[in-house]
Amino acid sequence: MKKSIGIAIILLAIVIATAILSPNFLSAYNLENLLRRTALFGILSIGVGFVILTAGIDLSIGGVVCLAGILTPYLLTQMGWTPTETIGAILLMSLAIGILQGSLVAYGRIQPFLVTLCGLLIFRGVARGITMDQTQGFQGKFAGIRWIGNGRIPLPGVDGFAIPAPVLSLVIIAVLAMVFLNRTVWGRWMKAVGRSPNAARYSGVPVARLQILAYTICSLLAGFGGLLFVCDVGSAQPSDFGNFYELYAIAAAVLGGYRLSGGEGSVVGVVIGAAVMQVLRNAIVLVPWLPDTAEFAVIGLVILIGVLSDELLRRFAASRARTQAKGV
């Protein structure tokens, strides 16, 4: 928990700054939208957090989001599948992608960077091939299934503001992830794999199976995320749907306290990290003197500052702990 305080402070600072610079920021409409985007990206970020925890990386998230995002309307409208069949197929496909990529990393001993980079290219390529690059939409139907992405849960007595439905998914996923990581043997072992793969192996921890599990969770959440995204926006263009999402997810995890060398990170931190990313993107649009075209530059800069200040804070805490210990 303590480690998430730094990133929480950064979030608060950016929120306050944006609120001062743009009067529209605190409007109910904007906040609701912000919450929705945070929930959607938060789900992807929690997923990649598992992989980063084992000292791996998953660059294929954008590809999986794209494939899930275009297949959802495609299966519903072109193939005539029922919503249940469609959701089942998307989740099964994501599961298979995760197991495949995880096995290539764990048993094939191929660098995760390479495996998932190829995955990123392949999944987008497949998505474009299936649809012949045609935009896929719900054609105004399927409001029922689309609720999980674009639904609003009204608050009694509050007008103009409602809880976006994806927040529900995020909360359930975040709670499950926290329970898994902190309360189960596999969660404990997954951290051990990231801390020291050698020590884990010499302790009889099934390292390969845990790595595969991490990639599977990540792809599953990416596929589910893609489903939510397309339900939210209503249509998906195969050539750019989910572009750069893997980088947003990785950035959120790193901001939230995950170390790319593995073994450290918290679910709460990663969700706050995802929120920081979305507030930033929002701020660039709202603040009049910030050019929208500078979005990537600003985001890159803020992540750098965030990671740097986190490192400094960590060193400060460590040296204070040392002096305190000396004083006893």
Binding site: V185, A192, R195, A199, Y202, G204, V205
Partner: peptide, 21 residues
């Protein structure tokens, strides 16, 4: 140091890693 322990983790996390299962 390389193969037996997770040096950054506590005695508890190291000593219980097999028994917890």
């Amino acid at each position: 140091q390389r193969d037996g322990l997770m040096l950054e983790d506590s005695v508890r996390l190291n000593a219980s890693i097999i028994r917890i299962s």
